[in-house]
Amino acid sequence: MSREHDKGMSLIVKTITRLTVGLILLYGVYIVMHGHLSPGGGFAGGVIIALSFINIMLAYGKEDAFKKLSRAAASMWESIGAIMFLGIALLGFTGGYFFLNFLNKGEPFKLFSAGIIPLCNIAISFKVGAGVFAIFVALILLKIDVEKKE
């Protein structure tokens, strides 16, 4: 099982994954960027972004997935997301209070509108995507280690 897992799945799965994984990542980015205009937002988009990396890991094995996003990079992106979200919240003190929407509201139905809300969505997507990927990697690697010992 573990050796099969290292090498990944069959050729059909690998080909389909190679063709679709970019589209999945792009859809996640779209949901994050349009979080203030259409249904979705930082959490759902972040999980979709993480699922695209998980897809690579399931199809190609862990080495290829770690080439795209290593564990250290996942930890770093998660911390960056958390600090970015908190920093945006703290920047509200420039105008008065925590979580003040201090940027220009802009015109409704435009991509660059709604002040800090798109920035918060991007921060949350970093955090959720990297965090979910890190949890998945931790659980899967634990399972492989246990199998190797038995």
Binding site: H36, L37, G41, N101, A114
Partner: peptide
């Protein structure tokens, strides 16, 4: 108040 068209987004992030 928020300029966000998606009301859910404006509630959870503002």
């Amino acid at each position: 108040r928020t300029g966000a068209v998606n009301l859910v987004s404006s509630v959870i992030l503002d």
